[in-house]
């Protein structure tokens, strides 16, 4: 799963620049994910299992860094459990259906945390996504942990602060559609800057500095005439011509 998600993230990032909003869903049985997570935790000292966990961590870190809006939809039939629950916390926004769709015979969607949500998958600020989410109330993470392994319905997930909105069947379609359409109407650049700024609350680390400071400056410089204009140094490199700089400091 992690490798496939990684490949999909890279493919979409490089090859599909105009697909600006990624809507994330899961499908399947929560117990299956619980079993996987328990197995990973139980054998986490073993080299291979350790590598599997570390790889999942890196893939989710790559997801945190994508320049795309991330919206997670939690619907009946989903399995946002443990490792996959991280997709709810990685999203810029999440919607969880309160109840079921009319006429549907599926049970309402539930969230379920496992040990994987409380340490093994830190972000590049070295905090878990839950710690980052509840930066204003670090002890609240313990309230979430108290519900570990239990199925949390939309109302309770909302109370715990795990999801953004919990529309019911009547409002779901319009609310989700309008949110996604509205997002698509905004400037992609402004969204990328906004999302990158909001996703990484908390302490600076080597990695947050590299992505939030160094490469952000680099990407600005990559747009500037002093580098890429007709007289720019990057453009003229190797031609023997002297670069001409606009001397204004910005």
């Amino acid at each position: 799963m992690a490798r496939e998600l990684d490949d999909a993230i890279m493919h979409l990032s490089f090859n599909e620049l105009e697909l600006g909003t990624w809507v994330l869903r899961t499908q399947g049985v929560a117990d299956q994910i619980t079993i996987i997570d328990q197995t990973l935790i139980q054998h986490q000292e073993h080299w291979l299992v350790r590598e599997i966990i570390l790889n999942i961590k890196r893939v989710f870190k790559r997801l945190d860094l994508v320049s795309r809006s991330l919206v997670t939809l939690i619907e009946p039939g989903s399995c946002f459990t443990g490792t996959l629950l991280e997709l709810v916390f990685a999203a810029d926004r999440s919607y969880m259906l309160d109840g079921t769709f009319e006429g549907g015979n599926e049970v309402p969607a539930m969230l379920r945390s496992t040990e994987m949500n409380f340490g093994p998958l830190p972000m590049c600020n070295e905090l878990t996504r839950l710690q980052t989410r509840f930066l204003n109330d670090p002890e609240h993470v313990e309230n979430v942990r108290a519900e570990i392994g239990k199925d949390l319905d939309a109302v309770f997930a909302d109370e715990l602060g795990l999801v953004t909105f919990i529309p019911d069947d009547i409002d779901w379609e319009d609310e989700v559609r309008i949110a996604i359409e509205e997002r698509a109407s905004f400037s992609p650049d402004a969204l990328t800057g906004m999302e990158a700024s909001l996703r990484f609350a908390g302490p600076e680390t080597l990695e947050t500095k590299i992505f939030g400071r160094l490469t952000a400056w680099q990407n600005w410089i990559f747009q500037r005439p002093n580098a890429v204009g007709e007289q720019g140094a990057l453009k003229l490199y190797g031609t023997g011509k002297q670069a001409g700089f606009d001397k204004k400091r910005v």
Partner: peptide, 15 residues
């Protein structure tokens, strides 16, 4: 509409 629908499927069967 510029949207990607990305779905992760939990494995079936024995794990």
């Amino acid at each position: 509409s510029g949207i990607v629908n990305l779905t992760i499927h939990a494995p079936d069967g024995d794990l």
